[in-house]
């Protein structure tokens, strides 16, 4: 039995390596995105084998789902701008690696090979399964307010990391809005009737799944980031099926949603500190409600931010005059 599973692990590892190579080698950019998404899903499967279901959920939802949607949107934009949208073969105006000399490629390959060998030697000889943070986390679990160790680490023991992560998301959406400000409006692709029906069927279910994943995070794999990503998928469906059209009047609300997570997170930390404790040292009886409050607000923020990262453009902002003439062409 164990041998069969190990065989499965080896095959999966080889498949993952093969998909990584294929994603970089395949000529068609659409096929490249498909390879990358498959790579992400296989990675999630590998992480389930490594007893990391939370990480696998996050990878499947955010690393694969949201990243795949972002890549496809960019691909659509590039093909529309370069006028190759109607062509069956995707954008290949530049053949791969036209100017890189063979010697440079060979030298890079040798160097990367050496790096891999060095890292592999270090990894194999390192004491695997040595003492980590397991014991410290297990000792502190009763005080954490939740029953699932990963959620306890994310929102209690190492809450600073998580706060900064939400800040990074906020910074990303600000940067994307600024960069896209002077791009001409690009019409979203028109979806067919099958898609519209699909969206109508899937939307309610996705909302329930997203909230459940958030709620389950307290006792089982799941939590704010995975739940937020599922709810962001709801936002993506709404945007693509034109059920929801971002309007200029919604800008203030959108900004409020982006900041909500950071604001509540920081507010709770400061209130706790005001009560004479360390910044993220929740009072024992209140740990669970506080963590749920933060998780809920952060989930809403993450969902809104990821959907906005996909939509890209700040609603209602007109491009500068110089760019409008470009867009009219």
């Amino acid at each position: 039995m164990t041998d069969l599973l190990l065989l499965f692990d080896m095959l999966l590892g080889l498949l993952i390596i093969g998909l990584a190579v294929a994603a970089l080698r395949v000529r068609d950019l659409f096929a490249m995105v498909v390879m990358f998404v498959t790579f992400g899903l296989m990675t999630a499967l590998a992480w389930v084998r490594l007893a990391a279901p939370d990480v696998a959920l996050a990878e499947a939802a955010i690393g694969t789902g949201v990243t795949g949607a972002l890549l496809l949107k960019t691909l659509y934009h590039l093909r529309r701008v370069s006028g190759t949208l109607h062509l069956p073969e995707a954008l290949s105006e530049r053949p791969p690696d036209p100017q890189v000399p063979r010697a440079v490629i060979a030298a890079n390959a040798v160097m990367c090979g050496l790096v891999v060998i060095g890292l592999a030697a270090a990894f194999v000889t390192a004491p695997l399964g040595g003492p980590g943070f397991d014991a410290a986390v297990a000792d502190a679990m009763p005080e954490s307010g939740v029953d699932h160790p990963v959620t306890a680490v994310l929102l209690n023991f190492r809450a600073y990391d998580t706060l900064m992560e939400v800040v990074v998301l906020l910074a990303a959406v600000i940067a994307v809005w600024l960069v896209e400000r002077s791009l001409p409006q690009s019409d979203p692709p028109v979806m067919g009737e099958v898609y519209e029906g699909f969206a109508r069927l899937v939307l309610p279910g996705a909302v329930v799944v997203g909230v459940y994943v958030l709620w389950a995070g307290a006792v089982a794999p799941g939590g704010a980031f995975q739940g937020g990503a599922v709810l962001a998928a709801v936002g993506l469906l709404l945007l693509m099926s034109h059920v929801y059209e971002p309007a200029p009047a919604h800008r203030a609300a959108a900004r409020g949603l982006f900041v909500l997570g950071v604001a509540v997170f920081t507010g709770v930390a400061l209130l706790v500190a005001w009560g004479g404790r360390a910044v993220f040292e929740y009072p024992p009886g209140l740990a669970k409600p506080l963590i749920l409050l933060i998780e809920g607000m952060v989930t809403i923020s993450i969902a809104a931010t990821l959907a906005a990262l996909f939509h890209g453009r700040e609603p209602g902002v007109q491009p500068r005059p110089a760019d409008t003439s470009e867009g009219a062409q």
């Binding site: 996050a58 955010i62 972002l70 980590g132 306890a152 992560e165 990303a172 994307v176």
Partner: peptide, 24 residues
């Protein structure tokens, strides 16, 4: 060990943020 798991989840979210900015 839950601590590296939490680090990787954080890393995935930061990676998607950086990817979104790079794509823009």
């Amino acid at each position: 060990d839950p601590v590296p798991h939490a680090l990787v989840i954080t890393g995935i979210v930061v990676l998607v943020s950086a990817t979104a900015v790079a794509l823009a």
